[in-house]
């Protein structure tokens, strides 16, 4: 083979190799989904899937596997995490991107990265030591509720802190993508910094902010160990944010491998994993749809 042919060959095959590696990882994701579906077949073949999802009765010994309490627990904790985490992250990211002097920025960014490097178990311990008493002894009594402190709100707060670095990092990228010329245009009309942030930066970044939020949502939905430690893990429908909840990942982590002698328990846990899989998939699909919509509106 001549040198020229070798170059040509390398060029062609590098592209092919990258394509196949890429397809391989997509294939793994599909494989996981299909695997969970097959493994959970014993339970959804016997009971209707609608019943499984919307029943709140969880009595494994009687063969009753209702996931509603777990699903609602997961959704509630995730929702609280985003409600608490998003505004704080948004404001912090605006500060770092638009206001912070270079020196402050160079101190803050490594600290935020450090935050994302802390293992979830440490967040869990921190939650048990500080947030659980805070909710149980301070917040709940203030709102006239009785709570052990192991509650949906506790999980939400801990998760909010955990998704904070992720949100900030994505939001900073989103803000970075807004051209300086656009901000200059607003400023040159005599708008001040805040007006420019409000009308130009945030508006222009809206699709990115939504995408970041949904990404954080999926991350929070899947978070296991920290949530497991602070949520109380009681499988009842929560009536307030001060009630204990039992999120799906905690259910799987607590029971998988332990109680597999009970008929269908194994399949039920696989179904829990599949529901989680679908929820996260739906989140991502939703974010894609929102983004496409916004991009088509041509404001970007």
């Amino acid at each position: 083979m001549s040198y020229k042919q070798i170059r040509l060959w390398k060029d062609r095959w590098s592209a092919n190799l990258f394509l196949w590696l890429c397809l391989f990882f997509i294939f793994i994701v599909v494989l996981i989904g299909v695997g969970l579906l097959i493994k959970s077949a014993p339970i959804w073949k016997e009971q209707s899937i609608v019943h499984l999802i919307f029943s709140k009765e969880w009595k494994p010994f009687q063969g009753k596997f209702g996931f509603l309490a777990y699903i609602s627990g997961s959704l509630l904790v995730t929702f609280l995490a985003v409600i608490i985490g998003l505004p704080i992250s948004l404001m912090s990211a605006v500060y770092i991107s638009e206001y912070a002097p270079g020196r402050v920025r160079s101190i803050l960014l490594p600290l935020i990265d450090l935050l994302s490097g802390i293992p979830p178990i440490v967040y869990g311990v921190w939650g048990v030591l500080t947030i659980v008493p805070l909710v149980g002894q301070v917040l709940a009594p203030r709102f006239g509720a009785v709570s052990s402190g192991y509650s949906a709100l506790t999980g939400g707060i801990v998760l909010a802190v955990m998704i904070f670095p992720l949100l900030i990092r994505i939001l900073l990228d989103v803000f970075e993508a807004v051209p300086a010329g656009l901000k200059d245009a607003s400023l040159s009309l005599g708008a001040n910094q805040w007006e420019t942030v409000k009308h130009v930066l945030l508006k222009r970044s809206a699709p990115g902010i939504i995408a970041a939020t949904i990404l954080a949502l999926s991350r929070a939905l899947g978070e296991t160990i920290a949530v497991l430690m602070v949520c109380g893990n009681i499988a009842v429908l929560p009536r307030s944010i001060f009630d204990s909840v039992y999120p799906l990942p905690a259910l799987i982590a607590n029971n998988y491998g332990d109680m597999l002698s009970i008929p269908q328990y194994d399949a039920a846990l696989m179904l829990a994993a599949f529901i989680l899989f679908v929820l996260i998939f739906l989140c991502n699909a939703l974010s894609r749809m929102v983004l496409n919509r916004l991009e088509r509106r041509d404001y970007a």
Partner: peptide
């Protein structure tokens, strides 16, 4: 001060509205 000076940049930057 900036209000006294209009700015036209190298390429137009219409505001996102």
């Amino acid at each position: 001060m900036r209000k006294k000076m209009g700015l036209l940049s190298q390429r137009p930057f219409p505001l996102p509205m």
